[in-house]
Amino acid sequence: MTMEQNRQDLMKLIQLKFSRLSKGQKLIAEYILKHYDKAAFMTAAKLGQTVNVSESTVVRFANELGFSGYPKLQKALQEMIKTKLTSVQRIELSSDYMSEENVLKSVLKADMENIRATLEKINDSTFEDVVNSLFRANRIYIVGYRSSQALADFLAFYLGLVLDNVRLISNGVSDVFEQLLRVKENDVVIGIGFPRYSSTTVEALKFARSKNAEVVAITDSLLSPLASSADYTLIAQSNMASFVDSLVAPLSVINALIVAVGIREKQKISETFETLENIWDEYNVYTYKNKSTI
């Protein structure tokens, strides 16, 4: 089901239920139908205040639509719009529910919620399958653009310390398809992407799939365009905080992936870091040097 279908289904549900709603609930319905983008980021109290009804009326409205509570309705609204908003629209919306005084706590709480939701959604068996695929792979390609590029860089850096066959698809002179030119069966391509999804990453995974490579997607939903080309999909929630994408939960999943690979290659990684420590000391890579005790 596409995001557009989700929007149409929820809007249609509200329209179908409209005649049976109370006077106060109809005010809520009318506001959501006209301003669903703003309603998605309002608390029940804020939405009630906006249309001059009580918070309990908002909760009952959500129940009338078949949701177990207002947070479930709010989540449905957020899922419906998160791929459609421009950065300017995100800024405008965030100003309605987030002030300078509460921004720190609001963002930290949102990130905590993203990690909690990721714990519930991610599939342990799929995670194990991804780890196994990395050890089977001839070559491992990592793709991530826009805000996800930082995640791709992080994964490639640490995974490259453990495995010798890791290649980061860079955002440089070479076109992404040139860098994936020799991808083939028994290779693994990891694509990282969150709303608003990079079309380059989506097309890169489609290309890898056409070459019979195993494809791993690290994304926010099985409905993500990355997931449609993937053999394995690792779900990490990434609800936005204003114009900034929240990448805390995706980074945690990537950390877990790196650690899982490292545990299987414990001896090798110990030797690697022992060598690196000597190099770092010799070339003053860090300001602090390890000194042996007497």
Results as ranks from 00 to 15, higher is better:
residue 58 V to P: 05
residue 155 L to D: 00
residue 253 V to P: 01
residue 161 L to K: 15
residue 110 A to W: 03
residue 276 L to C: 02
residue 38 K to T: 09
residue 266 K to C: 02
residue 92 E to V: 00
residue 38 K to E: 13
residue 279 I to S: 11
residue 288 Y to W: 13
residue 107 V to M: 04
residue 132 N to S: 13
residue 90 R to G: 05
residue 4 E to L: 13
residue 32 I to D: 01
residue 261 V to H: 12
residue 267 Q to K: 15
residue 213 A to D: 01
residue 117 A to N: 11
residue 248 V to C: 07
residue 23 K to Y: 11
residue 151 L to Q: 05
residue 6 N to R: 11
residue 51 V to D: 02
residue 20 R to A: 13
residue 253 V to H: 05
residue 81 I to F: 07
residue 247 L to W: 07
residue 147 S to V: 15
residue 103 V to S: 05
residue 182 R to M: 13
residue 186 N to C: 12
residue 151 L to I: 13
residue 262 G to Q: 15
residue 172 G to M: 11
residue 60 R to P: 00
residue 199 S to D: 04
residue 244 V to C: 05
residue 122 I to A: 01
residue 132 N to F: 06
residue 187 D to T: 07
residue 136 R to E: 15
residue 38 K to Y: 10
residue 28 I to V: 08
residue 139 R to G: 04
residue 17 K to W: 05
residue 83 T to C: 08
residue 166 V to K: 03
residue 84 K to L: 14
residue 210 S to I: 00
residue 78 Q to Y: 06
residue 224 S to E: 06
residue 155 L to W: 01
residue 233 T to C: 12
residue 89 Q to G: 00
residue 291 K to I: 15
residue 282 E to G: 03
residue 35 H to P: 04
residue 188 V to Y: 09
residue 167 R to Y: 10
residue 183 V to H: 04
residue 198 S to W: 07
residue 226 L to M: 05
residue 168 L to Q: 09
residue 8 Q to W: 14
residue 268 K to N: 09
residue 285 V to Q: 04
residue 193 G to H: 05
residue 6 N to I: 00
residue 243 F to N: 01
residue 178 E to R: 08
residue 227 A to D: 04
residue 2 T to N: 13
residue 226 L to I: 02
residue 141 Y to K: 07
residue 189 V to K: 00
